[in-house]
Each structure stands twice: as structure tokens, then as C-alpha cells.
């Protein structure tokens, strides 16, 4: 390689950028203290004119080993494991039909016998937010029904 090239500003810049780039990857992981990103929901298969965009807000009063939301036709909206206590939001496409929606919530709340609650708030575009909850311990499975007035 030509020594003049090595002495050029371009080579210097490239060397510094390469070094910074290599350092950035571990530094990013070390310095980031953000909570883990909200899980991406599993989108239902598209059906013409049948899906409404919505925000889902999940609030767990205690950690859950697993948590799953499914629609009436069995489409999985959300499938989580090792769910921390607290609140998270995600976007979803929901099959709201005749202003109604049924979502099944299945949760494994672990071995504790103390009752706890999981709240699900659904905020479809142009429709009011509605919240339903399940209360219990251990393994839970409950249908949650939502109804809206016509937007």
C-alpha cells in the first residue's frame, strides 16, 4: 500500500470512523438503560375491510410467566413470555365486527396463590377506550368482550 495514502487525511478519517464504529456496538449495550422494547404483536392475516387499527394497553399487577391474546377465530394478537409487572402498549389490527370484539386472554401467573389482575385497554381508531380485566391466580383463561357505539 502506498505510504502517502496512509498519511492522507482520508485514511485518518477512515481509521477513526472504523474505530468509533467498532466501539459503538458494545458501548451502546453497556450504556443503554432503557427498558426492553414493547413486544411486537403478531398481526392477524389481512382480511379486506375487516380490520381496525388500535392501540392495546396491557397492565399486569404482578409478573406473568406467559400471556396470550387471541381473537375469536384463533388469531394470536400477542404472545408474551416472562412478562414484567407494569404497563406496555402496542399497535394491533383488530377484527371489530358490528361494533363488537371478543378477545381471549390466557395468562400463566405462576405458582403464587395470591390473586392478581391483568388489565387490557383497547383503543381503536375513532372509538372510545375500553378496559376489561381478569382477576385470579395460577393459570387463567377468560374471554373479554368489548362493545362500542357506531363511530
Amino acid at each position: 500500500m502506498d505510504c502517502n495514502f496512509l498519511r492522507s487525511p482520508l485514511a485518518g478519517t477512515a481509521g477513526v470512523l472504523a474505530t468509533l464504529g467498532l466501539l459503538a456496538i458494545p458501548l451502546c449495550h453497556l450504556t443503554s438503560h432503557r427498558p426492553p422494547p414493547a413486544p411486537s404483536p403478531l398481526a392477524p392475516p389481512p382480511t379486506a375491510d375487516a380490520l381496525t387499527s388500535a392501540i392495546l394497553r396491557l397492565k399486569c399487577l404482578a409478573p406473568a410467566r406467559s400471556l396470550r391474546l387471541t381473537t375469536e377465530d384463533g388469531t394470536i394478537l400477542l404472545d408474551l413470555t416472562d412478562v414484567a409487572a407494569g404497563e406496555s402498549e402496542c399497535d394491533a389490527l383488530l377484527p371489530i365486527s358490528h361494533n363488537s370484539l371478543e378477545i381471549s386472554l390466557q395468562a400463566d401467573l405462576g405458582t403464587s396463590t395470591a390473586d392478581t389482575a391483568v388489565f387490557l385497554t383497547i383503543m381503536p381508531d375513532a372509538r372510545d377506550a375500553q378496559t376489561r380485566f381478569v382477576l385470579g391466580s395460577g393459570s387463567l383463561s377468560q374471554p373479554l368482550r368489548f362493545n362500542w357505539q357506531s363511530p
Partner: peptide
């Protein structure tokens, strides 16, 4: 060499 290194640092910043 020192000049090119400094230029590189400034450009990176």
C-alpha cells in the same frame, strides 16, 4: 501523520 490524525478526529466529530 499527526495532521492527518487530527483532521480525521475533527471530521469524525
Amino acid at each position: 501523520m499527526r495532521k492527518s490524525f487530527l483532521s480525521g478526529v475533527l471530521a469524525a466529530f
